[in-house]
């Protein structure tokens, strides 16, 4: 039973054909890493899945609901699709706790007490139980990203989209964030990651999707694909990043 389904998705930026007929099937509980050179369309693909970018042809569905970029649809979708960004995008004027509680209170209409309980539980989960009252700018990048993960989890999503979430971090902070993701994967969360962390993709991920020139160039079991790539392009890519 697939949770996220892309069927011949085409996207254009004006004349530029970014996605050229993407087919992808992601099952609940799967950890899928999307890799590829910059400009290959991998972030665009991710952003199409939750309607942040519109697509011109084909179909995308999440949990059997069709994805369009209409505002109302995006917001309904937000209830099942969480997203984490490269630049964290925490709300600077709210404390860590308030950042996490905001959407559960005003979108899901939970009581403040209930939202607070959830926020605290999620913060514990990402290892930042003591930061509830801190403001984002007082945290390190790695801590901010973990707060962003907690904020997304508080909405209880079915799938979590991660858009290069360790790319803006200092190398020594990457591990903490990946550890949280690994924990989530173990708990059965469906993860779709655009990432350059090949070790993570191989060790934690179930499947790797290699994008090249707007197409799914090669995909398959992560260990097999990364150790034994078929196409010349993937061989080159792996050679360049490892």
């Amino acid at each position: 039973m697939s949770l996220v389904k892309l069927d011949q998705v085409h996207k254009y930026y004006g004349d530029f054909h970014v996605l050229k007929g993407i087919d992808l099937d992601i099952k609940a509980g799967e950890v899928v890493s999307i890799i590829g050179k910059s400009g290959s369309g991998k972030s665009t693909l991710l952003r199409c899945i939750n309607g942040l970018e519109e697509y011109q042809q084909g179909g995308i569905s999440v949990d059997d609901k069709e994805v369009t970029s209409e505002d109302i649809q995006v917001r309904r979708l937000a209830l099942s699709v969480g997203m984490i960004f490269q630049n964290f995008n925490l709300f600077p004027h709210l404390t860590v706790g308030e950042n996490i509680m905001l959407a559960p209170t005003i979108v899901l209409k939970k009581s403040k007490a209930e939202a607070q309980t959830i926020a605290k539980a999620m913060l514990e989960k990402v290892g930042l139980g003591d930061k509830f009252g801190s403001y984002p700018e007082k945290l390190s990048g790695g801590q901010q990203q973990r707060v962003a993960i907690a904020r997304a989890l508080a909405m209880n999503p079915k799938v979590l989209l991660c858009d290069e979430i360790t790319s803006a971090l200092d190398p020594e902070l990457v591990g903490d964030v990946l550890k949280v993701l690994e924990q989530l994967a173990k708990e059965g969360m469906t993860l779709v990651l655009v990432t350059h962390e090949m070790n993570f993709a191989r060790d934690v991920g179930d499947r790797v999707v290699f994008m090249h020139q707007g197409k799914v160039w090669e995909e398959g079991n992560s260990k097999k694909l990364l150790s034994d790539p078929e196409t010349e392009e993937l061989k080159q890519f792996i050679g360049a990043v490892l």
């Binding site: 699709v81 997203m83 630049n87 905001l102 979108v107 962003a148 997304a152």
Partner: peptide, 11 residues
């Protein structure tokens, strides 16, 4: 990014 973050949280 602030708008996008709010949007994907359903606001």
């Amino acid at each position: 990014g602030q708008w996008e973050a709010a949007k994907v949280l359903g606001m």
